[in-house]
Amino acid sequence: MIRIENLRKTYATGDVEVHALNGVNLVIDEHEFVAIMGPSGSGKSTMMNVLGCLDKPTSGTYILDGIDVIAASQNQLSEIRNRKIGFIFQSFNLLKRTTALENVELPMLYAGGSAKQRHEKAAYCLELVGLTDRMHHKPNELSGGQQQRVAIARALMNDPAIILADEPTGNLDTKSSVEIMSIFQQLNDAGHTIVVVTHEPEIAQHTKRSVWFRDGSVSSDEPVAERRFAEGPDLQLTRHQERKGEGA
């Protein structure tokens, strides 16, 4: 699914060159649930941006779902972000003054497709995260946990190859954090590939594999021992699993 070889990202600040990524090698397979960890300045944010095709690496190889990202133009990068990646941010990044439903519809708006198709799919994604009754609420009428669930629904909209979550629980209280991690675990069980960037070991413990970054490269990469299972609402994903199976 993801193959990264000898990836480098260098920023020039004045005369000094900063090697934010300094030869990263990483392979992530389908159905994996990976936590990217590391102290600040370790390069994990840069890694997140490169993984999400928001930033182009200076050199190296990055193959996402069979596509050579390094060779892609700005326009193609937009398309990859749109179809292959589902973003979830720490600060939710929902459009203000726009209902949950319309926020979730957004990725398909840029992908194309009829309005009817879009409404149906968005309603379905909101149903998955248990927000059918909040469909027509605007972000400022929703709690933090609910807003993040809207963001998850939005990430699922175009059936992405990979879900990228950048500190998804950073702005949430413990209860909501557990809820969000529960959703991630259930989505992973249903077959979604998920990468979470976090600095909280407890969050990482909910994943299956933790990759540590230090000084711009991977310092350790091991399966999660003593994995935690979050208590949360049952999303009834069996149907989703079937639907995904049909789509594949």
Partner: peptide, 12 residues
């Protein structure tokens, strides 16, 4: 808003 739209796949 522009950043969000771009991240989600809006083209230039």
């Amino acid at each position: 808003e522009i950043g969000i739209r771009k991240a989600i796949g809006a083209k230039e």
